[in-house]
Amino acid sequence: MAPMRPVDVAAQTEPSTPQSRETVFDIQGLKASYGSNVAVKGVDLEIYRNLVTAVIGPSGCGKSTFIRCLNRMNDEVPGFRQEGKILYHGIDLYGDGVDQIEVRRRIGMVFQRPNPFPKTIYDNVAWAPRILGLKKDLDERVEKALKGAALWDEVKDRLKKSALALSGGQQQRLCIARAIAIEPEVLLLDEPASALDPIATASIEELMHDLKTDYTLVIVTHNMQQAARVADRTAFFSLDVDESGQGAGVLVEYDETGKLFTAPSDKRTEDYVTGRFG
């Protein structure tokens, strides 16, 4: 009789979904525009801690604008205006008295093209800690950041060499190291692999997988497969054209990545992920 006792196999192989999700961003009715051009509107979504959240969609759907709202990078763009609320742990990012510098210190960003400073590898990583007054144990901080970005082994012997001598993929990982050197909580990645070759892309994707244990990641990508591979949850944005012919990005669907890519609930998502779009 002993071998017949049922075992709880379900508990062992259940995909690892966090039991209680902590909300990092709670976005309510976000509308972002440049002058009279509305880039995105009516966006409601919640981004959860220690997950990779991907934003996908066709060109012009406002996915880049959206992610740049999350650390107020759009403030630099003349004519930018934002309505609605972006609550970061319950605090409105665009509320009174919120300093964009403090915001960006907690919410780091990595861009489409690797953009290391024309400095040494070490100084690239140490730059932000220095200006933010985190000068104590700087060497360890740099090493930790480079290790976190899976770059340490490749550069530890040439920390004082120019960062521009690195390959594209290494430069992008250096930019990630630079961002995590000040220990942000969130890392925003705006098409981080679109300028990289497939091997470098794979290493960045692998890195994202590792990073989510410590950080909350939001990635914008035009590469659906990339979203499918790396993201826990995926938001699909699309371009919505109203009667007057004015287009604006809207959030169409937001769900578990597996669900979105196997059984999307919106026809527009289905058309996009199957390549029947437009």
């Binding site: 960006r104 960003m109 861009f111």
Partner: peptide
């Protein structure tokens, strides 16, 4: 993107310019 890179690290405008 150099400018953006610095600003995204929480640097002020002046820091970005000088640094």
């Amino acid at each position: 993107d150099q400018r953006e890179g610095a600003l995204a690290l929480g640097a002020s405008r002046w820091r970005t310019v000088v640094g």
